[in-house]
Amino acid sequence: MIIAIASGKGGAGKTTVSASLAAVMSPPAIAVDLDVEEPNLHLFLEPEITGQEPAYMDVPKVDETGCTYCRACADICQFKAISVLGEVILTFPEMCHGCGACMAVCPENVISYDRRTLGDILWGRADETEFLMGRLRVGEAMSPPLMRQVKARLRERLAETGADALIDAPPGVSCPAVNAVMDADVIVLVTEPTPFGCYDLALAHEAFRNIGKPMGVVINRAGLGEDAIYAQCREAGLPILAEIPYDRAIAEAYSQGRIISETSDYFKEVFTDLAENIKKLAVADVAREEISHA
């Protein structure tokens, strides 16, 4: 089972929930940080990093000796990454999406690949939990290509170990966030009972429901703000899987890099119950699909 921890609003508590769930999940399990722009999960799980490799994207390199300046490459490129000015070809590797279209349409076959560094993929282990993360190079604009490579490694690990996976997703509801949750079996939306939390939860629900996977909500900082979030979840048909109370002690523990489920027996139980509720949600959905296919 792949569980994605997501939220529209940043700072809602995704990493708090991910780290605590990772600590209570029964092995084999793998925790994956797909918030490649600002990965934070390792700050809490403190894994021993056992391997690391750079990730690259193919970008065009033109051998102008055979080029006839026919413009086919510039005409097909949708990202303004290659252009022809008279008898000069300019490439803009930072604009390239790595689609390979220029190479495919070049009639002279003079385009080969150079590479652009996207960032790094790191892996290791935190106690019994396997760990995997992507870290975007500062200055790199596109996170989905790196995320795809992290997910490819995740698939390999899952095929090998049969582990459950826990994905810490980036904030928001646009392309990177959708990329992080699209392969999950169940999506957990972390929110807080504030106007910003409510609004961004609605955005996240709208964005992710197309993916067709079961979704539930964790309300963080419960007791703060207002109660509107409960009615909103009820009307949207989103089950509340756990509530984490608003408590200065939690904020202080977080500020010390501590995992909340490890701060007390009470919180250990909150997150053990959450893990159980997530499993039930996923199982109920599988049962529903089986009934509809029968």
Binding site: E37, E38, G139, E140, A141, S143, P176, Y254
Partner: peptide, 24 residues
């Protein structure tokens, strides 16, 4: 939030940037 495409577009050529952080 983040450091990717929309942040880069927000930052380039700006006069002053105020970064809000927290002690965590």
């Amino acid at each position: 939030p983040g450091i990717g495409c929309p942040v880069i577009s927000s930052l380039s050529g700006i006069d002053l940037t105020v970064i809000v952080t927290e002690p965590t």
